[in-house]
Structures are given as C-alpha cells and as structure tokens.
Computed example of a mutant assay.
Amino acid sequence: MGGWDAYNVTEDADLGFRLARFGYRSTTFVSTTFEEAPARFGGWLRQRSRWMKGWMQTWSVHMRRPWRLWSDAGAKGFFTLNAVVGGNVLTALCFPILAVDIAVGLLARSGGATEGLAASPITPLHLTTIVAGFVSTIVVGLMGLARRGQLRQGWILALTPVYWACLSIAAWRALYQLLNEPYRWEKTEHGLSPQIRSNATAQTPTIRAMATQRRRRYR
C-alpha cells in the first residue's frame, strides 16, 4: 500500500482507508482490551485533539481527489469516509454553535421575539437530531455496559451532553493545531491507574522471559 502517511497523527485511520482503496476489508472480532483510558481531563483532551486532527488530515488527504477515492473504494468507502470521519469532526465543531443558537432562540421566543433558530420552522428537526444523538449514544453505552456486567455504572451516561461539549473543545483545539501545528503528536498518558501499574509490574517478569525466548529462537 506504499506504507502510511508519516505526517498523519492517526495512522490507523489513514491505513484503514488505504486498505479499502486497495480492495482489502477490515473486520472486528469479540475480544477484551486492557488498554488504559486517560485518567485525567488534560490527557483525555490531548488524546481526543490528536484523534480529531488526524481525522481532519485523513479526510482532507483522501478527499483531495474525490473521483479517485470513489473509483478505488467504491460508494461505500466514499460515504464512510465522509459520514464517519468527516461527520464526526463536523458535528463536534458544529454542536456548540447549534446549541448556543437554539438557546438564544428559545430565550428570544420566551421574550416574544421571533429571531433565532428556535423561531424557524425547522427547529423541531434540529432539536430532534440532537436528542436522537444523545439517546443513541446512551443506548449504545448501556448495551456495552450490559455485556460487561457493569450496568451499575450506567448513571455516568447522563453526562453525555457534557461529554459532547468536551469533544467540541477537542475538535476546535484540533482545528487550531491543524492550521498552526499540523504534525505535532501529543502522546496518550498511560500507567496512571494503580491497577494497571500493579498488573504491569506483575507481568514484567513473564514478558521479559517471553522476549528472551524469542531472542534465543531467532539467533
């Protein structure tokens, strides 16, 4: 596939679409990941900003010649890039603008004014779209928690609107970096969880032994 884009800060996204353009398919399988999620807001923000910036890079590179992308990846690949990669970024950027506009419009209507998005005939559609996004996100989260036997943690999903607002901060930060520091790589923090640290310490001798066996095998 010609390697990957060394300047893209989300190389997995770029590789996924390169695979599709070469006629390959990606799939998922049932598994458990023990990767540690960011434990602090600063680390989370840097991680999500990098992801958002990488998706912007992936979209802009592969959409440089849209007709070529359509020819290589087909209609499914073309619309997947725009809906999943471009759509996630666009909705994150637009969410605070739409939310503020709706709030201002509702306040204007309550005061008898007719300006603002809330006064337009398509306001119900905008509100329905936002509510549907919240509900679908919560339902998917509950499904995942149920499969892991963690439904008692489901209350946290009530903070989905706050999480979306944080994603918007990450998206706008990513856009700023794309224009000013496009190749800056903000690495994700790991090893902050006591449980992760203890597991890593316990597994270190085993990992070292496996590495030694591999070295002996390939000498």
Score class of each variant (00 low, 15 high):
Leu15Asp: 00
Leu167Val: 03
Phe79Cys: 07
Asp14Met: 01
Gly144Ile: 09
Glu189Thr: 04
Leu106Tyr: 05
Lys76Val: 12
Ile196Tyr: 01
Ala202Arg: 13
Pro38Ala: 02
Asp72Gln: 12
Pro161Cys: 05
Ile138Gly: 05
Gln195Glu: 12
Met210Trp: 15
Ser31Gly: 07
Gly105Thr: 02
Gly141Pro: 03
Ala75Tyr: 07
Ser110Glu: 14
His62Lys: 02
Glu189Cys: 02
Glu115Tyr: 14
Asn180Trp: 15
Ala92Glu: 04
Gln153Phe: 12
Glu35Leu: 07
Gly16Leu: 05
Ser71Gly: 15
Tyr7Pro: 02
Pro124Gly: 12
Tyr24Ser: 04
Arg21Gly: 04
Leu107Lys: 05
Arg219His: 13
Asp5Trp: 03
Ile102Gly: 07
Pro161Thr: 07
Ala37Met: 11
Phe34Ile: 02
Thr27Arg: 11
Trp185Thr: 01
Arg50Asn: 09
Ala113Trp: 14
Pro182Arg: 04
Ala99Tyr: 04
Pro121Ser: 13
Ala209Thr: 10
Phe41Gln: 09
Leu125Lys: 12
Ala118Cys: 06
Gly116Arg: 08
Gly112Tyr: 06
Thr137Asn: 07
Val104Arg: 10
Gly54Met: 03
Gly77Glu: 00
Val140Met: 15
Ala75Glu: 12
Ile122Gly: 11
Gln203Asp: 13
Thr33Asn: 01
Ala39Phe: 06
Ala146Trp: 12
Thr123Leu: 11
Arg147Trp: 08
Arg25Asn: 05
Leu19Ile: 06
Thr201Val: 13
